[in-house]
Structures are given as C-alpha cells and as structure tokens.
Simulated scan of single mutants.
Amino acid sequence: MKKMLCGAVAAIALVGIAAPAAAQTNERHYAGTIVGIPYTSTNPNGFQTGLLELGLLGGIGTRYTAQADAPSDSETATPTVNVQFSLSGRVNKDCSFYAGNNANATNIDFGVIGVRTGNNENVNSAFEMVGPATAEIESLTAGCNFNNEVVITKSNVNGMVNAAAGGYDTDEFQANIPYSVAARWTGVAQNAVTSGTAQSLTVSTSQLNGTKTQGAWRSSMNIDIVAPAITNKGLVAGTYTGTTTLTLRAL
C-alpha cells in the first residue's frame, strides 16, 4: 500500500470483514488550487480522472489513493453447520442355559425304580412299579435375547427303554417306562413387547416332542420329569435309558 502524508500524521485502520462480504477499499482523492480557487475531487469518474491526472503532470494539485485486496472465501460461507452422525452397532443373537459345571450335572439317575417284589403280592400286582419316578431340575439362568423357540425332544416316544429286555409276555410285562416333561419359565409371546408372564411347555407321556415360540426372555427355568407308576403290567428287569433334549433356539 502506498500513502502520501502532507503536513499531518495519518492513522491507518486495518479492518477484516468476516461476514457479510463487503466491497474492498478503492479510494482516489484529488486536491489543489487553480487560479486561486481550491478544489477537491473524491473518486472521480474516468473523464474527470484524466483531467486531474493532466493537472498533476502540469504541477497542479495532489492525489491520494488507497486500494485493498484479499482473496475471497474458498467456498460459500456457512454461518450455521448441521452435522448428523449415524450411530450403529450389533448385538449377536444368543441363548443361554446354565446346566451345571460338568456332564454329571445333566445325568439324571433315578437309581432303583422300585417294583413290587413281595412273594405275598397278588399276581396282578407283581413286578409293577411301586410309585412314580420323578426328577426336578432348576436353572436360575436361562433365556434368549431375540425371538426364539423352546423345544423339548425325547429320544423315544416310548420313554425310557430297556434295550436288553430278553423275552417276555407282552400281555403281562413291558420294557419301557413312559414319562412326561414340563418346563416352566417367565417370558413373552413372539414379537410381543410387554411384561413377562408365566410360560410353560409340556410334552406328555405319549408325545415325542413339543415347541413353544417366544420373544426375548430371561428367567429361571424349572423342568419336571414324571414317569407315572405303571400298574397294569410288570416291568422287565434291566436298565432303562432315554434322553431328553432342551433346545433354546434364536430365530
């Protein structure tokens, strides 16, 4: 920037305008005296400027100019900016059932299943079950974190089976012990968004399996296995085995 000072001190104020955009400084001022008459001219037009410039060449008057320039914004200024962040994450589907700390916890052994062995029993009662065989199972941690199925499946619709029964009169004996399985927990129906209520699934002595569809749930679960006493036939001696599988399956 070039400036001319004549008999005075000039203070230059530098100003940057952020917004809104303003015209940049472009000042041209003339002053002088012609035939004893003082004159001034501020930002004259092109023709006037030519005459005044000729006067300067002839030694008449003076001139002051001020010009400022700076590059404009690289892009249109935005005094307010809104940025929307999209948040996302994923939770894996999972089902849980605490079934103890080792395999022994799920081996349900009824021990000796008592039958009527007294020699004073009526022939119509001999070798029949003394009473029902029962098992109670409880887990304090069970559930799924998404719509799911609770499934109970027996290995044999006949229940526990004596696979080495030998020969026997089928009118008087049998080599299987039917049993039912009933599970109880707290949950909700599939796709229901509501408070949990008592839920249950029962597979009867004559059924092989059963399924119940649920929404996400977590609670304790109780499982009752009941083999009712067989009182119309005797049981063949031997080992009776079977498996029951509880499946919690996220859909």
Rank of each mutant, 00 (worst) to 15 (best):
8 A>R: 07
232 N>V: 01
79 P>C: 04
233 K>M: 12
32 G>T: 05
30 Y>P: 11
110 F>W: 13
174 Q>A: 01
13 A>Y: 14
74 S>R: 12
65 T>F: 01
174 Q>L: 03
146 F>Y: 13
250 A>V: 14
41 S>Y: 03
110 F>Y: 13
56 L>G: 07
111 G>K: 03
142 A>Y: 03
176 N>A: 04
3 K>C: 05
191 N>D: 15
80 T>R: 02
62 T>E: 06
190 Q>F: 04
181 V>C: 09
60 I>R: 07
185 W>E: 11
140 L>S: 14
68 A>K: 09
228 P>G: 07
82 N>K: 11
48 Q>E: 15
71 P>I: 10
63 R>V: 15
238 G>F: 03
33 T>E: 15
128 E>M: 13
191 N>W: 05
222 N>W: 02
89 G>A: 12
152 I>F: 12
126 A>I: 09
139 S>E: 10
156 N>K: 06
198 A>S: 14
13 A>I: 14
31 A>W: 12
171 D>H: 00
74 S>I: 15
53 E>D: 15
60 I>P: 10
24 Q>T: 13
178 P>H: 00
193 V>W: 00
95 C>M: 06
94 D>Y: 02
247 T>W: 00
55 G>A: 09
198 A>N: 13
52 L>M: 09
12 I>Q: 08
61 G>A: 11
37 I>A: 13
125 S>Y: 08
71 P>G: 11
28 R>Q: 12
58 G>Y: 08
183 A>W: 06
38 P>C: 03
227 A>M: 05
149 E>N: 15
191 N>R: 03
30 Y>C: 06
124 N>P: 01
99 A>I: 11
148 N>K: 00
54 L>I: 07
148 N>V: 00
134 T>W: 02
171 D>I: 00
101 N>D: 14
77 A>D: 11
156 N>T: 08
165 A>F: 05
142 A>N: 10
109 D>Y: 03
193 V>C: 01
114 G>M: 03
107 N>P: 00
194 T>I: 03
91 V>Q: 10
92 N>C: 10
150 V>G: 00
94 D>H: 05
120 N>P: 01
246 L>I: 15
202 T>K: 07
86 S>G: 07
209 N>T: 09
154 K>M: 07
99 A>L: 06
176 N>M: 00
24 Q>D: 10
8 A>M: 08
162 N>V: 05
206 S>E: 15
251 L>K: 11
200 S>C: 02
46 G>N: 09
169 D>T: 11
225 I>K: 07
130 V>A: 12
194 T>R: 01
70 A>Y: 06
129 M>Q: 15
224 D>N: 12
165 A>Q: 07
198 A>L: 12
173 F>P: 08
146 F>C: 12
174 Q>S: 02
85 F>N: 13
53 E>C: 05
23 A>Q: 10
188 V>E: 04
127 F>H: 12
27 E>T: 11
135 A>E: 14
104 N>Y: 05
113 I>R: 02
245 T>G: 02
78 T>V: 14
165 A>C: 05
136 E>W: 01
